[in-house]
Structures are given as structure tokens and as C-alpha cells.
């Protein structure tokens, strides 16, 4: 049996129905979104189902979309089924006021530091994480630097027109 994107989508919608949204295939990689309270259930299903067996967490990272009100912060999981060599990308979104997402450390040991990194840069609070503290930045830091409201360059500089470098001065 070949594990195609259609088959995975069908399996997921059979099990979770309407909860699986925004199904896309950018550059062939199946991408979908699940509600944030269901991320563990879906990952557990992807992990355990005898046909799916996504047992390897390749990557976990955060994203910040300041324009999406109510779902500003995202967590992106890249899962891999090594024997069949298929990847999927799973996303959850949360609001920025109370960014709680369940931790995947129970399923994947490798999620530990990656979640700490995501917390460090985006402030996403992984509920149930055994040791959620900053990892790359100093402990005393009181903001989350990769959020878009922190501009990279000093905005008071007037010798540089930021419009010429990418997208405007405010981001």
C-alpha cells in the first residue's frame, strides 16, 4: 500500500471530521491545521494508527502572524513516516493573550528542547512540559524576541530608508 496524501487526508477526516481544516499541499507536502486542543489527539492518531505510523518528529517551530486576530501564534510540526518516507506538516494556532498548547514531549522526547526554543522565542506556553524555561536566550529576558513586534534594526535610524529593504519599517 502506498501512503498517498489523499489516503492520509481521508483517514484523518474519517477520524476527526470537520476538525481538520486548511488542507493544502504546498510543494507536495501535505499540510493541515487542527484546533489547538486537539493537537495531541491528532498526533497520537498519526503515531499509532497501523496505516499511518508517523513516528518521527522532524521539526517543531513557532510562527507569528500579527494580522490574524485571535490566532496570532502558530506551532508547526513536521512529522515523518520513515519506512514509507512520507512527511506531513501539522499546524495549530493560538491567541497571543493566552498561548497555551499541549506539549508533545510525552510522544516525542525530541520535542523537549524544540518546545523550549519555541517558548523562548514566541512565548508559547506548552502545557505539561517537564521543564519549560528559556534555552538559547538569557533567563532574565522578559520578552519573546521572534515575535513580529520586535523590529530587527533600530527604528530610530534615519540614514536608512527601510522601504528599500523588504517590507516597510513597522515590522
Amino acid at each position: 500500500m502506498v501512503l498517498t496524501n489523499e489516503f492520509i487526508t481521508q483517514k484523518l477526516t474519517e477520524k476527526f471530521g470537520e476538525a481538520i481544516t486548511n488542507i493544502e499541499e504546498p510543494y507536495g507536502l501535505l499540510t493541515f491545521e487542527v484546533p489547538k486542543e486537539m493537537n495531541l489527539k491528532v498526533m497520537q492518531f498519526l503515531h499509532d494508527d497501523p496505516d499511518l505510523q508517523f513516528r518521527f518528529l522532524t521539526d517543531l517551530c513557532g510562527v507569528h502572524y500579527p494580522d490574524q486576530t485571535g490566532r496570532e501564534l502558530g506551532v508547526v510540526y513536521h512529522l515523518h513516516n520513515m519506512p514509507e518516507n512520507v512527511r506531513v506538516r501539522l499546524k495549530v494556532f493560538t491567541n497571543i493573550q493566552q498561548p497555551d498548547v499541549f506539549t508533545a514531549t510525552k510522544l516525542y522526547e525530541s520535542a523537549n528542547w524544540q518546545e523550549r526554543e519555541t517558548y523562548d522565542f514566541y512565548g508559547i506556553n506548552f502545557v505539561g512540559h517537564p521543564n519549560l524555561k528559556r534555552i538559547l536566550n538569557v533567563d532574565e529576558m522578559d520578552y519573546f524576541p521572534l515575535r513580529k513586534e520586535y523590529p530587527l534594526e533600530d527604528q530610530t535610524r534615519i540614514d536608512k530608508d527601510d522601504e528599500m529593504f523588504g517590507r516597510g519599517g513597522s515590522i
Binding site: D59, C61, E109, S110, W113, E117, F165, G166, R167
Partner: peptide, 19 residues
């Protein structure tokens, strides 16, 4: 845009050093 909106490096070292 002209720059990435988000770029994440999956750094193998960082992930396996946990062990």
C-alpha cells in the same frame, strides 16, 4: 516579500544533544 516571513533551521545537533 523580499525577505522570508519566517525561516527556521532544523539543526540536527540541537535536537540530538538533548539525549
Amino acid at each position: 516579500g523580499r525577505a522570508p516571513f519566517r525561516l527556521h533551521f532544523r539543526r540536527p545537533c540541537f535536537i540530538y544533544y538533548q539525549a
